[in-house]
Amino acid sequence: MCRNIKTLFNFDPPATDLEIHDASLQFVRKLSGFTAPSKQNTEAFERAVERVAAAARELIDSLVTNAEPRYREVEAAKAKARSAARFGAR
């Protein structure tokens, strides 16, 4: 599940709230072991996602770097090349 959590810091344009929410959702899924909580656990699950997303946004907004920002298209191309080298071109 956590393979879907991507680095969100130091991108141009910055990470969106949706990207942070999606990463937070994956994190809470991993911690809880649920891909979808039961009705009884839905409120706690959603509250956890909201809190993790808020903490992630605060972290990302607080970090500083002197490195040049990364670009999603370039990083996606690098990931595709790594995958092709690892698993072969398809």
Score class of each variant (00 low, 15 high):
residue 88 G to Q: 05
residue 75 E to V: 14
residue 17 D to M: 07
residue 74 V to D: 09
residue 19 E to H: 05
residue 62 S to N: 13
residue 67 A to D: 15
residue 15 A to R: 07
residue 10 N to L: 05
residue 7 T to C: 11
residue 10 N to G: 05
residue 8 L to I: 08
residue 59 L to M: 09
residue 37 P to S: 05
residue 45 F to C: 01
residue 3 R to W: 07
residue 84 A to Q: 14
residue 83 S to R: 15
residue 34 F to M: 11
residue 16 T to M: 05
residue 24 S to C: 05
residue 38 S to C: 04
residue 17 D to K: 07
residue 30 K to I: 02
residue 10 N to I: 03
residue 2 C to R: 13
residue 28 V to E: 02
residue 87 F to M: 07
residue 82 R to P: 00
residue 45 F to N: 01
residue 2 C to A: 12
residue 43 E to R: 10
residue 53 A to W: 01
residue 76 A to Q: 15
residue 59 L to E: 05
residue 85 A to V: 06
residue 13 P to C: 04
residue 75 E to A: 09
residue 29 R to I: 02
residue 8 L to W: 07
residue 19 E to G: 01
residue 47 R to A: 13
residue 78 K to S: 09
residue 29 R to F: 03
residue 12 D to M: 06
residue 86 R to W: 06
residue 19 E to Q: 13
residue 65 T to W: 07
residue 45 F to D: 00
residue 1 M to R: 08
residue 85 A to C: 11
residue 82 R to T: 03
residue 88 G to H: 06
residue 72 R to P: 00
residue 27 F to E: 04
residue 13 P to N: 06
residue 34 F to Y: 13
residue 10 N to Y: 02
residue 4 N to Q: 14
residue 51 R to Y: 13
residue 49 V to N: 05
residue 28 V to T: 03
residue 52 V to I: 15
residue 77 A to G: 04
residue 21 H to K: 10
residue 55 A to N: 08
residue 26 Q to H: 14
residue 73 E to F: 09
residue 85 A to D: 11
residue 18 L to R: 11
residue 8 L to N: 01
residue 67 A to F: 07
residue 27 F to M: 15
residue 63 L to I: 08
residue 71 Y to N: 10
residue 25 L to E: 03
residue 50 E to Q: 15
residue 77 A to I: 11
residue 8 L to M: 12
residue 74 V to N: 04
residue 29 R to E: 02
residue 84 A to L: 05
residue 52 V to R: 02
residue 41 N to S: 09
residue 87 F to S: 08
residue 20 I to Q: 00
residue 5 I to N: 00
residue 13 P to M: 05
residue 26 Q to A: 15
residue 11 F to N: 04
residue 39 K to H: 06
residue 69 P to H: 01
residue 25 L to G: 01
residue 79 A to T: 03
residue 18 L to S: 08
residue 71 Y to P: 01
residue 5 I to Q: 00
residue 81 A to P: 02
residue 54 A to I: 03
residue 56 A to Q: 01
residue 56 A to N: 03
residue 31 L to I: 14
residue 70 R to G: 03
residue 65 T to F: 08
residue 51 R to Q: 15
residue 6 K to I: 11
residue 28 V to M: 06
residue 40 Q to D: 14
residue 70 R to L: 11
residue 68 E to C: 02
residue 11 F to D: 00
residue 80 K to P: 01
